[in-house]
Design a protein around this nucleic acid. Structure first.
Lengths: 110, 110
DNA sequence: ACCTTTTATCGTAATATTGCAATATATAAA
DNA sequence: TTTATATATTGCAATATTACGATAAAAGGT
């Protein structure tokens, strides 16, 4: 089918999964790492940095924008992408909270 | 194409992405949450808990086993799934490290 | 041996994702 | 206004994912 049955899960579960899904591609990890590294915002030299075609990078940027991690400002003829810090904190919180679900109990195996 | 060009990315980038990809489905989040909640390990009542068919749950469990989050012990006629605590710590570390990539700089936008 | 229960695997249909060439769009420069 | 540059969108091919019915496999009970 290829179609996830989102209706049967909670909003929280869907949110966590959607964030993870967007992070679930090495190109998108590479984009975020590059933006983190260059400090100043970057636009299309991601195409040079990463070895993917321009439409492909553009598509990955769209995915990242979809959940709000990145925002893009028009800067002359190019577009400057950078982190949306507020949204990033939210996403970080959501994931960090999830990463602690096993912290309280003794998950000893049977 | 549907085929990720893993060769052009670092092992770390591929690792992070693979973990995120596995977590990128609400059913797998639900499975982990349920195992966290019931403390003791659980097997096939995930099918009842979550509203998906048995083969579907089995497939999702396989994905989770693939990156080692879960391990399954044969317990009579059923199989008891539970967290692989060592592996979970590794996965948690990998993700937590990634979540801090933006912590050092001032990612002010252009 | 036969049945029951539980889980895995196979096969398949529907949909999603990845990647790119071609093209469109938008802005700056000449 | 034409040209160049940068990014987005469209269309498409190849592959992956999701879901499930049917069936196999494994172990326990009768």
């Amino acid at each position: 089918m290829g179609l996830t049955k989102s209706e049967i899960f909670s909003k929280k579960q869907n949110d966590i999964a959607q964030i993870a899904k967007v992070l679930g591609h090495p190109a998108r990890i590479a984009i975020l790492e590059h933006i983190a590294k260059v400090e100043t915002c970057i636009c299309g030299d991601l195409v040079n940095e990463i070895g993917l075609a321009q439409p492909t990078i553009s598509q990955h940027l769209k995915e990242l924008k979809k959940i709000g991690i990145l925002k893009g400002n028009i800067e002359g003829t190019s577009i400057c992408y950078c982190l949306d810090e507020v949204k990033w904190e939210e996403i970080k919180d959501t994931l960090q909270q999830f990463l602690n679900i096993f912290s309280n109990q003794n998950n000893s195996c049977c």
